[in-house]
Nucleic acid binder design. Structure first.
Lengths: 110, 110
DNA sequence: TCTGGATATATCCAATATAGATATATCATC
DNA sequence: GATGATATATCTATATTGGATATATCCAGA
């Protein structure tokens, strides 16, 4: 297992969040993120999965389907993802306090 | 003015959020983001500012200080930043619903 | 049946983004 | 006048990403 990085790339964070509800596999992660307007190309996706495995932030788990490789969060992965989520949450909080999120959609004057 | 990109880089988003409360200049943005554990090197900072200007997402505004260049959000920049904030907020919401943010700090079992 | 599209994983390369070093200059203060 | 903070900017090396390409299985419909 490689050393754990102190920071996550955006792709890594998104993958960890997609795995938070429970184990999934590469293609499933891609589809689930796609529903949330997060687009990861296959290159980024599978390379990031490899790096997360090497860093011990996710682990491979059992499956009956030969085609799929199921992954789940490790404790270390969950902790890092939570830290990153809180960092981003602070940023969003600043945006909200500044009134950036109050225009319901387009066309509202600032 | 260059064409507006559909997506923001993390650095661009962070800069836009730092400008949300009101106009600021490069060094001020760097210090403010540093307080929120967001670290941008000068290279990333000033290149991103240049790109945001070219894309019309920020605009230069008046200042009395010769050394500083003050920037403010444009409507287009505010809209894009808000959209990105909501996208990230959805991601954080998923993490929260999955119980990822409930361990108060380290040492709590998942 | 055979054909196309969805499912699934993986690698490669070109383009983009970032960090950090370096450079320059002003300002305040000791 | 030396030092550290303020302020902007560029350069290079590294990191990250998107998209093309490849391979293979599965399933539904013509």
């Amino acid at each position: 297992m490689g050393p754990q990085p102190k920071t996550l790339t955006p792709a890594m964070f998104q993958i960890l969040v997609a795995l938070a509800p429970g184990p999934s596999h590469g293609y499933g992660i891609m589809l689930e993120l796609g529903e949330m307007d997060v687009k990861l190309g296959p290159g980024t996706l599978y390379r990031s999965i490899k790096q997360l495995l090497e860093a011990g932030l996710i682990a491979e788990t059992e499956t009956d389907d030969e085609r799929r490789r199921l992954y789940e969060l490790t404790d270390a992965g969950a902790e890092l993802a939570a830290a990153e989520a809180q960092r981003l949450n602070a940023l969003i909080g600043k945006a909200r306090r500044a009134g950036l999120l109050t225009h319901p959609s387009l066309g509202t004057s600032r």
